[in-house]
Computed example of a mutant assay.
Amino acid sequence: MNTVTLALLFAALASPALAGGTHSDGHADAMAIGEPGKKAKATQTIRVTMKETDDGQMIFTPSDFKVRKGQTIVFAVKNAGELEHEFVLDQEDKVMEHKAMMAKFPEMEHDDPNAIRLTPGTSGEIVWKFTNDGAFKIACLIPGHYESGMHGDIVVAQK
């Protein structure tokens, strides 16, 4: 593939009209896992660390969460590792779709309220309102990170 063709492909993927949406097309409004929350309404802050371990694993600490339907959570996320990592909240099938897309386009830019990508030593947050009960996932979808253990579960219980 030549440079012009590759540039056109990336431009098409970045255009909602041509690609059927991007990471910033507002799909979060109808997500099964919930919707962006208002920090003032948060009832809990969960501090999450992302890092690599000495044995080659990549982890979230903690990696499993239990919250209540209707609850708004602030995820205070810190990248304590030496590599770039991301924290993505979603349904398992959507996580796997996103993972496949990231394998093809690892430098893809994100602009979703349910995801944050952090360089080493930086912190950020996601404020999220869980509007539905069920089982959901967290994951780092940078190629190879999920396979190295960087994923976990969120269980949203009915009130």
Score class of each variant (00 low, 15 high):
Lys66Met: 13
Met50Asp: 09
Glu107Asp: 13
Ala11Val: 02
Thr119Tyr: 04
Ile73Ala: 13
Arg68Met: 15
Lys39Gly: 04
Lys104Ile: 06
Tyr146Met: 09
Lys78Glu: 15
Ile59Leu: 15
Glu86Tyr: 00
His23Ser: 12
Glu97Ser: 05
Met58Asn: 11
Thr5Ser: 09
Met1Cys: 06
Val156Tyr: 05
Gly121Ser: 10
Arg68Gln: 15
Phe65Tyr: 14
His110Leu: 14
Ala157Ile: 07
Leu83Gln: 15
Gly34Val: 03
His27Arg: 13
His27Gln: 09
Thr131Tyr: 00
Leu18Asn: 08
Phe10Trp: 02
Val88Trp: 02
Asp153Ile: 00
Leu6Pro: 00
Gln57Asn: 15
Val156Ser: 07
Val95Asn: 03
His151Asp: 02
Gln91Met: 11
Ala19Trp: 10
Leu118Asn: 08
Val127Phe: 06
Asp90Met: 08
Asn114Tyr: 03
Met150Asn: 01
Gln44Lys: 15
Thr122His: 05
Leu83Val: 08
Gly26Gln: 12
Thr61Tyr: 00
Glu35Leu: 12
Ala100Trp: 02
Ala28Ile: 01
Gly56Val: 13
Lys137Cys: 06
Met150Ile: 03
Asn132Trp: 00
Pro120Phe: 04
Asp25Ala: 14
Ala80Asn: 13
Thr45Met: 11
Gly144Ile: 05
Met58Val: 14
Asp54Pro: 01
Cys140Thr: 06
Val4Thr: 09
Gly37Cys: 11
Ala157Cys: 02
Met108Asp: 02
Thr5His: 03
Ala11Ile: 05
Glu97Thr: 12
Phe75Glu: 08
Asp153Tyr: 00
Thr22Leu: 04
Ala80Arg: 10
Gly20His: 10
Pro106Gly: 08
Ala17Leu: 13
Leu83Tyr: 09
Ala12Asp: 14
Ala100Thr: 09
Gly20Met: 11
Thr22Asp: 07
Lys41Ile: 02
Ala32Thr: 09
Cys140Gln: 06
Ile46Tyr: 05
Thr131Phe: 00
Trp128Gln: 04
Ile154Lys: 01
Ala7Trp: 03
Val74Trp: 02
Ala139Val: 05
Gly149Trp: 01
Pro106Met: 08
Ala103Lys: 15
Phe60Gly: 10
Glu92His: 10
Pro62Leu: 07
Glu86Leu: 09
Asn132Ala: 08
Asp93Leu: 07
Gly26Ser: 11
His110Pro: 03
His85Gln: 11
Ala80Cys: 06
Phe87Lys: 03
Ala139Gly: 09
Ala76Trp: 05
Asp64Gln: 15
Thr43Arg: 06
Leu89Gln: 10
Gly34Trp: 01
His145Cys: 11
Met1Ile: 09
Ala40Val: 13
Ala11Trp: 01
Ile116Ala: 09
Leu141Asn: 13
Leu9Met: 11
His23Glu: 12
Ile33Phe: 07
Met96Pro: 04
Glu109Ala: 14
Gly81Tyr: 02
Glu82Val: 13
His27Phe: 10
Lys51Ile: 03
Asp112His: 10
Val77Thr: 06
Ile138His: 03
